[in-house]
């Protein structure tokens, strides 16, 4: 994918909305298109989180492994959403298995590279954190509503 192509994806992706032109170009330099085949593992619980993913198309299932039930799916991430915050939170290890449900297309960022950019440019770091906290807040609220077992 060309830089123009990557910038095109950036413009349409909710996670990067509101980013300045300068930061957009900066991030585009580190973005790498990826494709995952159905059932392919993008991340394994406990592994070092080396990547941050923006999903363009397809779905990714987040799950946890349990001894008696295998990997229990917890949440599904779809187009326009993102996968991974472990890259930002020490000790930088994946909290969940992330597996492609269908064919997934998106952009991946190297975790170390991204952290370094955020440290050097706090404005960029603040922006990414603000987006990430929004995602986390939504997922936390949703989890809490699910805990209420509404449909019982």
């Amino acid at each position: 994918m060309t830089e123009q192509g990557i910038l095109g994806v950036f413009a349409g992706h909710k996670f990067l909305s509101g980013l300045s032109e300068r930061h957009r170009l900066l991030l585009a330099a580190g973005a790498r298109p990826f494709t995952a085949a159905p059932n392919q593992l993008l991340a394994k619980e406990g592994d070092t989180a080396r990547c941050f993913y923006l999903i363009q198309s397809g779905h990714v299932s987040l799950g946890m492994h349990t001894p008696d039930r295998g990997v229990v799916p917890i949440h599904t991430v779809g187009p326009g959403e993102e996968v991974g915050w472990s890259w930002l939170v020490p000790p930088h290890r994946w909290q969940f298995d992330c597996r492609a449900v269908d064919e997934v297309h998106g952009l991946a960022f190297d975790a170390e590279w991204l952290r370094e950019k955020c440290e050097l440019d706090h404005e960029l770091g603040y922006h990414l954190l603000k987006q990430l906290i929004g995602v986390l807040a939504n997922r936390l609220a949703a989890t809490r509503v699910q805990l209420l077992d509404l449909y019982k």
Binding site: H59, S61, L62, P73, I74, H75, T76, G78, V101, N138, R139, A142, V145, Q146
Partner: peptide, 9 residues
């Protein structure tokens, strides 16, 4: 094979 999570997601 469908989604997991709250309907609002």
């Amino acid at each position: 094979t469908e989604s997991l999570g709250l309907v609002t997601a």
